Amino acid sequence: MSKVMNLMGIWIGKIKGNNADGKFIGTYRAVISKEGHFPFKMTLHFDGTNNSSNKPYKKVEFVSSNVNVLKRKFRMSLPTKEKEKILWVKKV
């Protein structure tokens, strides 16, 4: 069985990132997944607007047994002062 088929419930959260001048600098993205009986794992990415940074340059992982804890951790880890609404989409 492939790893993709083994994943149970994937949440993807996105929010736009702006610098101090209000200029768009990229997108912050969180992917929450659960594999088998293990706790939920969240991976954070930042996709910048520079052509040289097509790949995420920041990748951080958090583990918890509760999805809501990970969603809150994503919101708290954002460097922006304005905590806009994060769009969460559940993929099955």
Rank of each mutant, 00 (worst) to 15 (best):
M1R: 09
S2A: 08
S2H: 02
S2K: 12
K3A: 15
V4S: 14
V4P: 04
V4L: 11
M5E: 14
M5P: 03
N6A: 15
L7M: 08
L7G: 07
L7F: 12
M8T: 14
G9F: 06
G9L: 04
W11S: 01
W11P: 00
G13K: 01
I15A: 02
I15D: 05
K16S: 10
K16Y: 07
G17W: 08
G17A: 14
N18Y: 14
A20M: 11
G22M: 05
K23Y: 09
K23N: 06
K23M: 12
K23T: 10
F24Q: 12
F24K: 03
F24L: 13
F24I: 06
G26R: 01
G26H: 08
G26N: 06
G26D: 03
T27C: 03
Y28T: 04
Y28I: 02
R29W: 07
A30M: 09
A30K: 01
V31G: 09
I32S: 02
I32Y: 00
I32R: 00
I32N: 00
I32E: 02
S33F: 04
K34V: 13
K34G: 10
K34D: 08
K34S: 13
E35V: 14
E35P: 03
H37Q: 14
H37F: 12
H37I: 12
H37P: 11
F38T: 13
P39W: 03
P39C: 01
P39Q: 04
F40K: 02
F40D: 03
K41E: 09
M42S: 06
H45D: 10
D47P: 04
D47G: 07
G48R: 10
T49S: 14
N50S: 15
N50K: 13
S52A: 15
S52E: 12
S53C: 10
S53G: 07
S53Y: 08
N54T: 07
K55M: 14
K55F: 09
K55A: 11
K55Q: 09
K55G: 08
P56C: 14
P56I: 12
P56A: 09
Y57G: 13
K58S: 12
K58Q: 12
K58M: 11
K59Y: 11
V60W: 12
E61Y: 04
E61T: 15
E61W: 08
F62T: 07
F62I: 13
F62W: 07
S64G: 07
S64V: 00
S64H: 10
S65A: 11
S65L: 08
N66C: 11
N66V: 06
N66R: 15
N66W: 09
N66A: 05
V67T: 13
N68V: 00
V69N: 02
V69D: 05
L70F: 04
L70W: 05
K71F: 01
K71A: 03
R72Y: 02
R72T: 04
K73I: 11
K73D: 10
F74H: 02
R75Y: 00
R75G: 01
R75S: 06
R75T: 00
M76F: 06
S77F: 03
L78S: 07
P79D: 11
P79R: 08
T80W: 05
K81I: 05
K81T: 05
E82N: 06
E82Q: 13
E82C: 01
K83Y: 11
K83R: 13
E84H: 09
K85C: 00
K85T: 02
L87K: 09
L87V: 03
W88K: 01
V89G: 00
V89W: 01
K90H: 06
K91C: 03
